[in-house]
Design a binder for these strands. Structure first.
Lengths: 231, 231
DNA sequence: TAACCTTATTGTATTTTTTACACTTATCAA
DNA sequence: TTGATAAGTGTAAAAAATACAATAAGGTTA
């Protein structure tokens, strides 16, 4: 490893923090790491780290998620940049927050170099965040709640083939409120972004639900036509 | 001036760029400065500059707008952080974009230390931006178009007392499309955020329009009740 | 002072969208 | 075969969005 290589130079006053959402057992979750070092040693924090001179913020977010938790190839979007002068105790660090969506089943967790542990934590359980991570988390959750009504991002959190009930559960657990089953189905199907499959749920002791998949081409077409939906 | 004072230390790899919108003569405008120095000397660019160790990004945006254009005490919101590695020619600089709203009549312009000139430029006229300022501008305009439908921010751009026609003109010039007068009035008045005054337009050679003012208390109340409007 | 020009102001009928609501079907387990 | 559980489905009522045009007011001009 060439530490003198310009491309590996760390920008020490700029970090990226990722709020990674997952969905398992009908519950919205967030990915946390246990910090190996001070400040905040042993506390459960948002995964993140510093950016390199050679990479964009998006690149950094991708890299840091791989490094800190082994999570790859996921939906990412920038949320906000946090800049309180005392937000990090050691020195002035400004942090760019990212929102990420992951299907937990597709990604095995593995603590990165600066963490002793990684876990999925239910969003509705209380979390004792260090630094300003509570504020970052709140903002990211807020953004997720807006997005889920205007972009079909929820599919990132589900298996490729899913039932309408799964989709509705996800939707409800992101928004934190319940919706009418028939009305939800009507709306979501009317958008023509879902294709029904000739496959059904397996291993359940009740009527098996039909499976659907997300039709990204149909969605792209809608978008190109300037169609704005609101779920 | 104590250059050694920590509070005045500049963070050289982090800048703020402001997209300042104004509304004059029924037209949406943007504030541009003529750069005094290279890179981009003499080009018309977005006002901005570097942040100080002692200030937040919001603070920096406020300060830079005062410094570069004499514009004070205005609506500000963060838009996005831009980080392409080659976005600034001299060295790696990451820039946080802000959206600002100003009533041009209330602010006299005065070029700051790094500018030879300042001006309001009509948004619909072509602008030849340096660096990645086109991208920054596009994103800010986009955000403004979203905001104007979900927050009563347009009032920042108008005099304290305004007519419904003025408000509608502003709305139309932000969105770039026309709306029906009767329906617009119905909707905006139904929100109860406007109070009709016993004052009327003056100096016009036709029927004088009634003036209204924005009722920020009523709006706050609406928001506290969790009411989300969509214009 | 009457005719004219310009913009302000106002209501209704139609269409579209959203909401509320409950029974039947399928599958497995007991 | 009965019971339990979740899947799947339609309609009527209410609310919201849209399309649309005549009258009022103030100033200017002939």
């Amino acid at each position: 490893m060439e530490l003198t290589n310009v491309s590996k130079q760390i920008i020490k006053n700029l970090s990226v923090d990722c709020v990674v959402f997952g969905f398992e057992n009908f519950e919205l979750e967030v990915l946390l790491i246990k910090r190996k070092l001070n400040p905040g040693k042993d506390s459960w924090a948002l995964p993140g780290g510093f950016i390199l001179k050679s990479e964009t913020l998006d690149d950094a977010a991708v890299r840091l998620l791989e490094e800190t938790s082994n999570v790859k190839n996921i939906y990412l979007e920038q949320v906000h940049t946090f800049s309180k002068t005392d937000r990090f105790p050691l020195r002035r660090v400004i942090s760019v927050a990212y929102l990420a969506l992951v299907n937990p089943e597709k990604h095995s967790l593995k603590p990165g170099i600066d963490a002793t542990d990684v876990k999925w934590q239910k969003v509705k359980d209380p979390i004792d965040f260090p630094f300003d991570h509570q504020e970052i988390f709140d903002r990211a959750l807020n953004q997720l709640r807006k997005r889920v009504r205007t972009k079909p991002i929820g599919f990132e959190l589900l298996p490729e083939k899913f039932s309408l009930t799964q989709l509705q559960n996800l939707y409800e657990s992101i928004l934190g409120e319940e919706v009418d089953k028939r009305n939800y189905r009507k709306r979501i199907l009317s958008l023509k972004m879902l294709v029904p499959l000739n496959e059904y749920q397996k291993g359940v002791s009740h009527r098996a639900a039909r499976l659907y998949k997300f039709d990204s081409k149909a969605f792209k077409k809608l978008k190109d036509e300037g169609f704005n939906f609101q779920l």
